[in-house]
Design a protein around this nucleic acid. Sequence first.
DNA 1: CCCTGATTCGC
DNA 2: GCGAATCAGG
Length: 196
Amino acid sequence: MSWTDERVELLKKMWTEGQSASQIAKELGGVTRNAVIGKVHRLGLSNRSGGGQAAPAAAPAATPKAEAKPKTAPKAAPEPVGDAAAGEDEPRTTSAAPQGLPSRKAIVPAGQPLPPQPSANEISPEALAKVNEIEKKAKKLSLMELTERTCKWPVGDPATEKFWFCGLPVQAGKPYCDAHVGVAFQPMSSRRDRRR
DNA sequence: CCCTGATTCGC
DNA sequence: GCGAATCAGG
């Protein structure tokens, strides 16, 4: 496969959207994530900042083959990164993107619907116990850390900082770990005593 | 271990 | 230009 205009365009689009190289590679097909990354660099859009200038790192006048350890790349651009991270006690003010830094897409659902928390009263006590059990061991992954093989069970209120995903290894195929599969997919059989 | 992007370098 | 191999990190 080669880099046709279309493919490059899709690459650009996805990269700008913040998709990972491997995801882009999957989408495109026929290329590896390395290929994607390589292309991204060649295209000069390694910096995902939308309106940013490409700060060309002035190459120091050094052409020798002096090997040694070129382990460190000088951080040329002093980025005014204003990450709001540390605070656990963020008010519920879901801040919209402040200044011109569109890089982060607010995917985090606002706090209204709060859907998948299954009401605990209709689940087999066993499964529940199991969940409470493993939820202590949960890896508490953030949204971005989820992969195809991490349990995507949400815990807590998305509007809060105390929100995470289980993150334990999933049961083959399923989107959840063993325990959460238990409460997510109840056999209809154990659904009986809903006298109504 | 899973993943990320970054770099290098033979092709 | 391309991308596998490798590196460096989370």
